[in-house]
Design a protein around this nucleic acid. Structure first.
Length: 561
RNA sequence: UCCCCGAUGGUGUAAUGGCAGCACAGAGGAUUUUGAUUCCUUUAGUUGGAGUUCGAGUCUCUAUCGGGGAACCA
């Protein structure tokens, strides 16, 4: 698992350093335990992929295990639909949590008992301050808060009320359980935070059996401790919560059961140019039907990227490439696209397609004669094999592959010049047939009958190679071309009131038709394809139409100038 | 306002106190039955100031800039 040569080109980010330091201090590899803790309130996106590639990746790399734990402590926000979607996305990315599928709600009883313990030890109390009073008593940064009038409520009384809270005797908001820490602490999170609130809501797993629910700060660290997590990795905004994370573990009896005390470490979340990762805003795009659904191929969600044709390997490579740091940055989408192209280039099947057809008649080819030629499926991978491609008297080529008056360095077809039809014959343009308006109707060409396969018998060099589709065999398909969802590069700084939709790219989705070689009838959804000289595509997995292809990413084309 | 965290080419990152390296993007070139790929070359960097040290991107102080923090959300 930890082959040295593989580790050499991986950056030694601070999480690796922490783990290696722990290892050197005596932590056993098999005791390393991480967790990925999504809240099932939305679909996973590329930013989550960064997080769970790290969670699962570190465990795998150092010989530990990673748990999947749904952080389902707020019943009003969560939905089972997302539990399934999240599992599917992680599985698709190739990670396996084996039988370690956990839920924070699995621990409700245990957590309740730890809360009782805190009350009994005079480290928690029942408070009846309203949310407004609560806020007022907490104070503001720079000014200490003041003690709640209930801070010294007798332990027995708090205990009694808490038990009755659980029994459902009170309305929502009537009481709250607070940890007794320090109302003067400069870190506001330590000013007696709420740890249990009443919510008469149905929970996705526990149904109606609970009406009090633990808060994140209380539930998360103890859940980690219960599961034997050693490295609890989360994003930077939880940095100020870390003292609380330690406080609950160190002030409950769970500390005595631990072989290794869990530690929280924070890293920067992903910001990607020309896209946006806010769950709330993505949800807005779905609700307002600006996109089809969460898995719209333009979405930065994993399901969207999957449908668009991204490969899990490309996403994993990207996550390794961007590294892990403790400072915010804005990663260019070009890096993600590079990782995609690099992977696709290795695996995509090459296929011929014409988007903007120009008819070519081969004057020295017999009418009705069809030659089935061998075509290589992937020059980067011999094991991908070959296929047969038909050639006949009438073919289509790309309009841009012909120029009547070519510039200097143009090496495709023009009157009187030769070009190679890929896998087929050397083609020479002898005449141009025009429409009444002067536009080109079709080309009359001849082929070198001795050049089957593309090589000239006399060894003459043919610089240009173009692709083609046989007219009688061509398949018609709809192709959807994608661009960035947003035109603005940096949407991460957008405030809530600023309207991110102002930056929606009107050209993020365009549709066109293409003529394809017949073998594409057998294309499978999500199978990476390269339509030569154009881009990478996949057959859409959701469209009911016969053939709809999504463009994954464009090729780099240096002949644009 | 107070507390916490951070700052390395255009971008993303690396460097037990010891030659600032890698990748993306850009530029140039070679090979090519995809103007792709591949290969080679190249442009460009330690936020400012002070200090410790034989030696500082790294340690200290300070300034500046950026991020986070005042849900009964996670």
């Amino acid at each position: 698992m930890t082959s040295e040569p593989e580790n050499q080109n991986k950056s030694k980010h601070f999480v690796r350093q922490i783990i290696e330091e722990d290892l050197s201090k005596g932590l056993q590899r098999e005791d390393i335990r991480t967790r990925f803790p999504p809240e099932p309130n939305g679909c996973l996106h590329i930013g989550h992929a960064k997080a769970f590639c790290l969670d699962f990746g570190m465990a795998l790399e150092y010989g530990g295990k990673c748990n999947l734990r749904f952080d389902d402590t707020n019943p009003t926000k969560e939905d089972n639909r997302f539990v399934e979607a999240i599992k599917e996305d992680i599985r698709w990315m190739g990670f396996d949590w084996e039988n370690r599928e956990f839920y924070a709600s699995d621990y409700f009883e245990k957590l309740y008992n730890y809360a009782l313990e805190l009350i009994e030890n005079n480290k928690a109390y029942i408070c009846t301050l309203s949310p407004e009073e609560f806020k007022e008593y907490r104070g503001i940064p720079g000014r200490p808060g003041k003690d709640s009038p209930h801070r010294n409520r007798p332990m027995a009384e708090s205990l009694d009320i808490f038990k009755r809270m659980r029994n459902g005797e009170f309305a929502e908001g009537a009481y709250v359980l607070r940890a007794k820490i320090d109302m003067a602490n400069p870190n506001l999170h330590l000013r007696d935070p709420a740890i249990y609130r009443i919510k008469h809501a149905e929970h996705i797993r526990t149904g109606k059996s609970w009406c009090i629910y633990p808060m994140y700060d209380f539930a998360h660290c103890l859940s980690d401790a219960i599961e034997g997590i050693t490295h609890s990795l989360c994003t930077l905004e939880f940095e100020v919560h870390r003292p609380l994370y330690d406080w609950f573990i160190e002030n409950t009896s769970i500390i005595k059961t631990l072989k290794v005390q869990p530690r929280q470490n924070e890293f920067a979340r992903l910001n990607l140019s020309h896209t946006m990762m806010s769950k709330r805003k993505l949800q807005q795009l779905v609700e307002e039907k600006i996109v089809e659904d969460w898995d719209d191929p333009r979405m930065p969600t994993l399901s969207g990227m999957r449908r668009r044709g991204y490969t899990p390997q490309a996403i994993k490579n990207f996550c390794e490439e961007i590294g892990i740091t403790k400072f915010n940055s804005l990663t260019q989408i070009a890096l993600l696209e590079h990782c995609l192209r690099a992977d696709l280039n290795k695996v995509a099947l090459r296929r011929m397609a014409v988007f903007d057809p120009l008819l070519v008649e081969i004057t020295n080819w017999e009418d009705g004669l069809v030659d089935w030629l061998d075509a290589i499926n992937n020059p980067e991978d011999e094991s991908a094999g070959t296929r047969k491609v038909p050639f006949s008297k009438h073919i289509y080529i790309e309009k841009s592959d012909f120029m009547e008056n070519p510039p200097k360095k143009y090496f495709r077809l023009s009157p009187g010049t030769e070009v190679r039809l890929r896998y087929a014959y050397i083609l020479k343009c002898v005449d141009v047939v025009k429409n009444a308006d002067g536009s080109v109707e079709k080309l009359l060409c001849t082929i070198d009958t001795e050049s089957r396969g593309g090589n000239a018998p006399d060894g003459r060099k043919i610089k240009g190679t173009i692709h083609f589709v046989s007219k009688d065999h061509a398949l018609k398909a709809k192709v959807r071309l994608f661009d960035n969802l947003f035109t603005k590069e940096d949407l991460s700084n957008l405030g809530d009131d600023e309207n991110f939709k102002d930056y929606l790219n009107p050209n993020s989705l365009t549709e066109t038709e293409a003529l394809l070689e017949p073998s594409l009838k057998e294309a499978k959804p999500q199978e990476p394809l390269q339509f030569e000289r154009n881009a990478y595509f996949t057959l859409d997995s959701k469209s009911s139409d016969a053939l709809v292809f999504n463009r994954t990413v464009t090729l780099k084309e240096s002949f644009v100038k």
